[in-house]
Structures are given as structure tokens and as C-alpha cells.
Nucleic acid binder design. Sequence first.
DNA 1: CGAAACCGGACCAGAAAAGTCCTGAAAAGA
DNA 2: TCTTTTCAGGACTTTTCTGGTCCGGTTTCG
Lengths: 156, 156
Amino acid sequence: MLRITKQTDYGIVLLTHFGLADEGQLLSAKELAERTRIPAPMVAKILKILVRAGLLDSQRGAAGGYGLARPARDLSLLEMIAALEGPVSMTECAEMGSGCPIEAGCRPRVNWKLINQVVQAALEGITLERMITPAPACATLDLGLVRAGLEAPQRT
Amino acid sequence: MLRITKQTDYGIVLLTHFGLADEGQLLSAKELAERTRIPAPMVAKILKILVRAGLLDSQRGAAGGYGLARPARDLSLLEMIAALEGPVSMTECAEMGSGCPIEAGCRPRVNWKLINQVVQAALEGITLERMITPAPACATLDLGLVRAGLEAPQRT
DNA sequence: CGAAACCGGACCAGAAAAGTCCTGAAAAGA
DNA sequence: TCTTTTCAGGACTTTTCTGGTCCGGTTTCG
């Protein structure tokens, strides 16, 4: 659990196809639906969302289509997810200041903010460009470091 | 978005109350509902889940109630979430080997596994004990380290 | 003009989440 | 022993979200 929605998943797959296409080349919704085998109306819907969020540019008309609004190296996974399903935050109270009816006996709040930051940092650190590289070279990561960053008891 | 469910959120709040109580003290569902202001039937439901998952022990009868099955320092957030909403994985394909109809044009797979590991490491690194400490001292963390762990291009 | 695309929504069915309720079984105490 | 308290286990309802479809309108190219 803690899953991204299918729509978001689709959206990211679509974006990777833009990343793989030649710079500036336009891809149409229909074309993408065929390539990815995602249902066409769904593809159309998602592309519209991505345009509104500013991740894609669109061109209408007979030879129209969609293209990345920014180079793949400047597009983070965090932005993609935020565009497709709203700002990333694991709990309500980590996002909004308050309004939580539980607040009385709620201590975890502070830590949730922290966890959010970790998740966001992780997502922000992965770019579309990286998502499309063959990746065996990138397939390692040092979890020890992640953990260390989290445990840092107190900055001196 | 990317939220934990309300049920999970409640569950964690409940667990923190056990962490704060004296070691070995039993808390009843009713009592917890009053303290946390979470609807009583909900509390009952969640506590049952936590017992089945082995995070809590229960004692029936007049002076019965619930208590932590393990000390707070041995209980990670990852376990709590997993108990309450199933194993943590952000995408389907990151969990199951395959079955994904998109597989044809799907490159991100590898990176998803990676991201999952980061999230899991983050959640695993936070214990119940830590969730209940007043926390100003723990409120900092070095995001640089997290990012570094993620970017580690290649282990030498 | 007409075909090919995008635009903006409305819409629906099915699934999941949130929350309730009821019956039964154990343990403690009078 | 009988009553009370409290957990156990489900069934159930209601609400919300998600995945997916469809349509009328507009822009652009040929």
C-alpha cells in the first residue's frame, strides 16, 4: 500500500515516452495510446492534466500533439506525482496547519513532517532523465546514508 | 496525496498512547476512544487489527485491555503501516514480479524499486519510541544525506 | 471545407475507505 | 453462579475516490 494511483502511474509512463522521443517531437494522444496500450480516453485525460500542470506543452490542429515543456533532466518525479495527484504529503496534519480533531492527544505530528521531507527529497532526486536511462549503473543506492540522514540526532 | 489511510493514521496515534503509558499497563478500547476522540467502534476495529498483526497483546475480561507486544524502541513505523494497510510499495510492478500489461513500454520499473527502498528505509528508521519523544531535538535531519544516498552513482 | 487534434467537462460503475452494529466468548468480581 | 466488563469476529452501510468513457466545441493543417 501507500501506492500511487494508476492514473499517476500511467502519467509517468507517458512522460517517459516523451523523454525517449527526439527533442521537440510532438506525440499525439492516439499515438501514445497505441504505444503504451493504455486506454485511449485515459491517455487523453492524463495528457490534459499534465498540460494544465505545465509539464507538457500542447499544439492543436491536424499535425498537433504534445511535447515536454522542459528538458527531461529538469523534471523531477516529485513534480510529476504532484501534478497528477496533488501535493505529496503522507498525512493530513503534515500538510495543513490544523483542523485535526485529534490534535489533543497527537504527538507524532512533528515526525510526520520529517518523514514527508525524506520522501519528498527522494522523489525530488529522481529526474525523468534518470527514469529513462537503462539504469543498471544507477541501480544501487546507499541505504546506509539514507538512514544516517534520518538518524542525525542533533546538528552541532 | 500519497497519503496513508485515516485508519492507519488512527492506528499510529493509538500506538503512541501505548508508548506513553507505563510499561505493561493495559488500556481498554473505550478508554482509548475517550482519550483520542477517535470514534469508539473505529478504535475497537483498529485494535483488533493490531492484535492480529502481533503488535499488540490483548487481555479479555473485566480488567482487560491492550498492551504493546514489544517495547516501543523495537517497533518501527514501517511495521505499523504494514500491519494497518498491507506491505508498503508505491507501485504494483515494484511488488509483484510482473503481470503488468504495460510492460512493453515500461522503463521506470527499476527506479521504482529504488524509491521504494528509500521510503521503506525512512519508515523503518523511525521507531515508536522516537514518535513519542518530545522531539525538538530530533526535528532536524540532513536531507543532503538522503539525497546523496540516492544519487550515489555507483559504488566503488 | 474537412479531417485530425486538443479542450473542457460531465458522467457512470465499481471499488475502496470510513464507520457502525451485532452476536459470541473469556475473565473478574460480587 | 451470575453479572459485568471487555475483547473477537464478522456483516453491513454509507460515503468517497478511482478508473474509465463520452460528448460538444475549438484550433490548425492541407
